[in-house]
Design a protein around this nucleic acid. Sequence first.
DNA 1: GCATCCAACAACGTATACATTAACAGATGC
DNA 2: GCATCTGTTAATGTATACGTTGTTGGATGC
Lengths: 232, 232
Amino acid sequence: MDLDQPQAAATGRAPRSTDAVYARLKQQILDNRYPPGAQILESEIAAELNASRTPVREAFVRLQQEGLLEIVPRHGVRISALSPDDMREIYEVLMSLEPTAVELLAARRPGRAELESLIASCDAMEAALEGEPDLQAWANADEAFHLSLAKLCGNRRLAAMIMQVWDQAHRARMFTLSLRPLPVQSTAEHRAVLEAILAGDVERAREIYHAHRKRGGRELTAIIERHGIQRL
Amino acid sequence: MDLDQPQAAATGRAPRSTDAVYARLKQQILDNRYPPGAQILESEIAAELNASRTPVREAFVRLQQEGLLEIVPRHGVRISALSPDDMREIYEVLMSLEPTAVELLAARRPGRAELESLIASCDAMEAALEGEPDLQAWANADEAFHLSLAKLCGNRRLAAMIMQVWDQAHRARMFTLSLRPLPVQSTAEHRAVLEAILAGDVERAREIYHAHRKRGGRELTAIIERHGIQRL
DNA sequence: GCATCCAACAACGTATACATTAACAGATGC
DNA sequence: GCATCTGTTAATGTATACGTTGTTGGATGC
C-alpha cells in the first residue's frame, strides 16, 4: 500500500523505465489483454516494452503486492484469476472500508466545491442511462465516483486500500456489466449518498453506502453463480 | 497486499536472497534499529547483509508498498516516521477492518478448538498483568490476539490489510507501551470479545471490538499529544 | 566576504553477464 | 514398450558493469 502514486508523475524528475513498465503492464492487465491465469515470462514483457528484465522484475513485485499477478518462482508470473471466493473477499473488504470513507467525508462537512468530482460523476451516471443506455460510460462514472470518494475521505491509507481492491475487481466488473440489470437503482443510491454527505448526515450516508455495496455484492454473486463462472 | 507470506517459507525451495534481505530488513525496522526518518543507502544494506544491490532493491520495493519505508529516487530509502496524522489514519483503518473481521469470524460460529490461539493469547494477557506486570509479554500477547483474529476471519485480503497497518503502527505501540495506564480494561475487552464470539453474538462482538479500538486510539492520541511527539 | 560556477564524486537506474535450477528430450536398460 | 536416467536448454535469481544524475567542495569573480 503505497500512499502516493508510485513515483509516477513526479514532474521534472527523469522518467524511470520501471514506472513506465509498471503503468503499461497494469493497464494491460486491467484491460484484460492477458487472459486471467495466463503465465508470462519476464523476457516477454521486457521485449514487448523495450526494457531489460530489471525494471520488469521491479514492476512485477509492485503488481504482485497489489494482487494483480502472482510471481511464481522460476516460472515468471501468473496473471491473477478471481474465483467466486475472491469476489466474496473483495466485497467484504469494500463493505467495510467504503462506508467508513463516506462517514469520514460526511463528518468533515465538505462544501459543494470540494464535492465537485462526485457531483460530476453522479450527473454522468444519470446521463449515461437516459435514452439509449451507455453501459461503458456508466461504469466509468461509477468508478470515478467511488475512487473520488476514497480520495476525498482524508485518509490516504484507507483510500489506497479501497483503490487496490477496486482494481482487483475491475475486470470482473467489466465482465458482468452487460449481464446485470440496468443500474438504475445503483445510480439513485449514489445520488442519495451524495445528498446525505451534503446534508452532513453521517449515519445515513454510511447506511446507504453499506446497503449499496451489499446489494452490489449480491447481484454480482448471483450473476457469477447463474453463469457458473469459476475464474476471471 | 500479498495474500501469502511473500514466498518466504516455501519449503524445499531454494532460499532466495531477496527473501532473506526482506525479512531481516523488516525485522530491523520493526525492532526500531533504524531511527524513524533515517536515510539509508542501498549499498549500506547490501554490505550489511552480504548481498548485492539487486535483492536489496527488490526488498525495498516490497517494504515501500507495506508502508515501512519510502524509496526516495536517487537517494536510497527513508525509514517511515509516523506523524500524529498517520496514527489517526491507522486507527481509522483498524476501526473499520477489525470489527468486520470479528463479525465474519463470529458469524462462522467457530468452536473452541478453532479459537485456541485466541484463548491462549487472552490467558497470556491476563497472566502478564498478575503480580509484577510484564508489559512486554502483554504486548506480545495482544499482538498475537489481533493477528490471530485477522487470520481466522476467513478473508485473506482483510487479514493482510490488518497485518499491514498493524506492522506500520508496531513501533509506536512499543514506544507508548510504558506510557499508558496498565492495560487492565483492554485485557478485559479482549476476553469479552472472545466470549461474544463463542456465544455467536455477532453484533456484540463487533460492538465491543469497535469500542476497544476507539478507546485504544484515544489513549494513544492523548499520549502523543501529552508528550508532544511529532514523529516516530 | 559572499555568491556563483564548475568539476569531481557518489549513488542510483538500467543493462548485461554469470550462476543456478527445473523442465524436457533422447538414450539406455530392463 | 516403458520407466529411468542424464545431458541439454531455457528461464530465473543474483552480481556486476555502465551511464546518468544530483550533490558537494573548491576555485573564481565581484
